[in-house]
Design a protein around this nucleic acid. Structure first.
Lengths: 224, 224
DNA sequence: GCCTGTTTGTTTATTTTTGCAACTAACTTG
DNA sequence: CAAGTTAGTTGCAAAAATAAACAAACAGGC
């Protein structure tokens, strides 16, 4: 019986230049050596407690990044994915503010707009599409997008993040009502003075207990 | 490097006696031979196009059931799950009307209330809990529960299904509005005459094009 | 046969939520 | 210090969800 190639892949997403971007790395080994692909690697049963640990290891080793939010996306498998044979990849997606990429990065960590990636090996294009759909979908009823913001941020900034993810404008007061209902943010003393020639906005940060936990709404963050 | 045990498991759920029940089978082989567990088995790379095909095969071979709705739940993996070593199970959940269990069943196919399962091997209890949570969660904003109903059903019946899944009563007109908005049902000529000493209810069935496709709402099917 | 009980399905009214627009606040720049 | 700009709030109208009341359609008993 032929063996199964067991790997993990990480879809590391961030928001930059008004759109979702994904981290791609040049593959070191065959197949597709030198080609841009998702960070991934074999599961090391001796080293990894489980697949999520493997994903964390791969992400850390290949990009130097430790993401506060890492969630299993799905497992992609089958005969045709990998020229080496029947393969299985447990995929995880991570969301980070784009500031941490490049700072903490060790090798060449480059970002690519998710709509513009082409020529990816394996089924990585499909995997990215699935991750993007999941993020957009989850953004419509949860606090997920806060993981794309930095340590502190203003409500208008957060609203802009939601709007780019959802692809439509949101009513200001509806948005603030929903975020308030999540009850996951706390104001930081000291407003955002950033060179704006206008009233400074209040800075917020995630309440400590929500650092790794999402908040959901049963009504949805609708457009407006 | 030690090898990885790659399997699939199927959480086959149905609604019976006012609650979710799961199909468990006595394991044929070690470890835990003779113990009740989820239907599962090794992935056969030579035979299975992908993990979902493996899940369909396992379900068919072990229970005789082909489920119209089968969705990947998640992959559970790690060192401690299986006494044989580092293992990985891609899990799928299926929803069927409880009528098809036992009819199509070949061997001893038994149902157990999901709240009352105890002493399961591996991490099957956790897997079932995850599946139940997924089903309940998805029921709050989708047409998923129709897969628990038979070929035809009345709106009050469907509402009862939703209410047991969500664990709370739903307002009648709100419910009908939401279902209407899904636009997935069509009336069947001829009302439900079942021995009720009351007005008979209209029978509905899934529109053909929705036989395998969910319909979502962005507002949620709230309680009432 | 007709009254009663029961459940279905619809209509009407009330409350809640949402969306919009106008408003005030607070800052920078000229 | 006036003008411009964005932040944040308030009040109101439109829409939607909920609740209650109602009407329809059957079975069963008298």
């Amino acid at each position: 019986m032929p063996d199964i190639i067991s790997t993990v892949d990480v879809i590391l997403l961030t928001l930059k230049d008004g759109g979702l971007q994904v981290v791609l790395l040049e593959r070191e080994h065959e197949p597709y050596a030198g080609v841009l692909a998702l960070p991934g690697g074999y599961i090391h049963p001796g080293e990894d407690a489980d697949a999520e640990a493997a994903a964390e290891r791969v992400l850390r080793d290949k990009t130097g990044i430790v993401s506060p939010y890492l969630e299993q996306l799905a497992t992609f498998s089958g005969r045709g994915r990998d020229p080496r044979g029947w393969s299985l990849s447990v995929c995880y997606y991570a969301l980070v503010p784009h500031g941490v990429i490049g700072n903490a990065g060790r090798t060449q960590v480059s970002l690519y707009p998710v709509d513009a990636v082409r020529g990816l090996p394996f089924d990585h294009a499909r995997i990215i599409a699935a991750a993007v759909e999941r993020v957009k979908n989850k953004s419509s009823y949860s606090s997920l997008p806060v993981y794309l913001c930095g340590e502190t941020f203003t409500l208008p900034q957060l609203q802009a993040v939601y709007e780019t993810l959802l692809g439509e404008p949101i009513n200001k007061v509806s948005f603030r009502r929903k975020i308030e209902a999540f009850d996951i943010l706390e104001p930081v003393r000291g407003a955002l003075a950033t060179g704006g020639a206008h009233r400074p906005a209040q800075l917020y940060r995630l309440k400590p207990r929500y650092h790794k936990q999402l908040s959901l709404t049963d009504r949805g963050l609708n457009a407006g």
